[in-house]
């Protein structure tokens, strides 16, 4: 290639590998000034911000942790209260049930006693009524007997006859059927 003859890189390019001292001094001065300005103003500000943010985040993590612990404590307390309330409720129910049972038992007892009393009363009333009825029947029977005997014998009975007849008649009458109803 004839073109390569016109690429005298090696010949004219020695400036490429020869450091330019003037530029070196420029680089040093400019770099050091930039370095000093950045060190004084920029890096501390960024560091401060990042530290602040790190602290904020750390504080927030702590706060969240505290909140979690608090929440757990509250939850535990509520659980405890719930258990307590449940046991109290159980107790109340048990007590109510016992009271109810006792009340029921008492009522039943009272009812039974009342019934017994009423039955007894009734029995007594029936007995008294029966006795009164028997006495009435007996006197009626005696009167009827005297009347019947007078009619048959066409005479008036003396007091002794009267008495004897009544007794005889009554003896023959069976009141056992009436008194048997008592049993």
């Amino acid at each position: 290639m004839p073109a390569s003859a016109h690429l005298p890189i090696a010949a004219s390019g020695s400036f490429l590998i020869t450091p330019n001292v003037g530029l070196m001094i420029w680089v040093l001065v400019v770099f050091l000034i930039s370095f000093l300005i950045l060190r004084k103003t920029v890096f501390p500000a960024i560091a401060q911000l990042l530290d602040k943010r790190a602290n904020t985040i750390s504080g927030e993590i702590d706060a969240a942790e505290k909140l979690r612990v608090d929440a757990e404590a509250v939850l535990a307390e509520y659980r405890e209260r719930l258990i307590e309330a449940r046991s109290q409720a159980d107790e109340i129910v048990a007590r109510a049930r016992a009271a109810g049972d006792a009340h029921q038992k008492e009522s039943v007892e009272q009812a039974r006693a009342e019934r017994e009393r009423l039955l007894e009363q009734t029995r007594r009333d029936v007995e008294a009524e029966t006795r009164r009825a028997i006495d009435e029947i007996r006197s009626d029977v005696a009167a009827l007997t005297v009347m019947a005997t007078e009619k048959v014998t066409r005479k008036v009975l003396s007091a002794d006859d009267h008495k004897r007849l009544v007794e005889e008649a009554l003896r023959e009458l069976d009141f056992s059927a009436l008194s048997g109803s008592e049993n």
Binding site: L16, I17, P19, N20, L23, M24, V27, L28, F31
Partner: peptide, 8 residues
Amino acid sequence: NVAFPLML
């Protein structure tokens, strides 16, 4: 230019 990296 080699001056720049050389200086640094």
